[in-house]
Simulated assay, not measured.
Amino acid sequence: MSGKQLKLTRAQKHNILETMASVMHTFKAYPSDRDVCLAAKALVTTHPCLNEPGSYGWKTSLKFKMGNYRTKLARAGCAEVSVNAGRRSINNPEGEYPHSNIKRARKAEVNYLPNFPRGEDKASLEELRVQIKNEVEKTEPNKVMIEKLMQTTFALHRHEIVQENPMVKDFLEKWPALRFHSQVCAEFHRVTNINLQKQFYAELDRHTPRLMALYRQKATCTGKISEALRNILNHYDHQEAPDVDVKRTAVLRALPVYLREEDPEFFKTCDAGTLDETNLTDTPVALLTVVADGSAETSPVHFSPSSMAVVVEGDLVIRDIARFADAYAILFGLIYALHLDYPRKLVHTFTFVQKVFMGLDDGKPLKPSLHALRNDLLQSE
């Protein structure tokens, strides 16, 4: 209370740092510089007597302690950090170079690489995986049972997708439950602790009025970007009494255009009668809009599709999705569930969805264009 600085012994400081590292690890195994700074600030704010001269005392100590704490966990077999251990050193001259093939959370995943549940091993979880596959193949699968088993085997399928990096088609043959809409959402929640659809739609609807205003403002200018936005907005304006689904489609379809990103291979369209014959061989990731026969090429955006489908590595992973926004959300969930990179030509768009719509901040600064757009949205509130 007096504000007097407390002189700590070496053992006392060690205990404080060890406790802080343990608590920080429950949130992130690899905290960013900003995260460590906030933790150090919280420590001295809560206990002013621990304040040290200079700006970086506790922050620097915490960074080193977190490194030491990860080393201890790796030696104990903690999967999330041991996967990045064993790098090249004097004692391990044949190991990989530092920063080579590092496997760690990159998109603010919370449960990135969990350990197996207590009392379970790879063999026991593999038996449960077979049960899941057999249940999925039934005419009327028990989705409650599947959900329970997928929760129990989460560590196993997470280890496989992160460490082995299999082809998506092969992985989904082993884990076919991830072709269900509900399991994509459940897996996203297991990885991030966020409700995919609730968060996505709440933030999308909250920002829709301001985003539409920004699109219309940009559409009044000259240039290819403005022309493309005008084309989308003109089709939107011709919709009779546009409902919330039409508005969501317009906002999501125009977002990459506004951010100066466009990938014709990502937004694909086909006629309902030719769905099974559509060539998707060289398509890494795409949203496929299925429309009434003969109308596939008549509009840059279809507000009332027959259905939507998600394509990953040339495979129709999930079909028969009712709405464009639903397909967009499911694809975002699959990116986390299948440990995929964002589409190369739409990195800014998906980063914006991650950080602004989903609130998954990885601690890295936004690119200037995304930062400006987020500020425009915040100013309207």
Rank of each mutant, 00 (worst) to 15 (best):
H25S: 13
A186N: 09
V317P: 08
T298D: 13
L366S: 10
Q239E: 08
S100P: 09
A123K: 13
E80T: 10
T249L: 05
F303V: 12
G273D: 08
V310A: 09
F64G: 15
V285G: 12
Y112R: 14
K148D: 14
D276G: 05
D315H: 15
N142S: 03
R319H: 11
T249A: 05
M145K: 08
Y112D: 13
T208G: 02
P305D: 02
K364W: 07
G77M: 08
V246I: 09
D326K: 11
G54H: 08
M20W: 13
N375F: 15
S304T: 15
L156P: 11
F352K: 00
R88S: 11
P256V: 04
Y30C: 02
A372Q: 13
T19A: 09
V246R: 04
A76E: 12
S304V: 11
D293W: 07
H238Q: 13
H25P: 15
C49N: 14
S124I: 12
G294N: 03
V83Q: 12
T298S: 14
A177S: 06
K174E: 03
Q12C: 07
G273C: 05
L178G: 02
Y336T: 03
G57Y: 15
A325P: 00
N101Y: 10
A327K: 02
K218H: 01
E80N: 09
E52M: 09
T249P: 01
F27T: 14
R70I: 00
M308Q: 12
M24R: 01
L370R: 07
D341E: 09
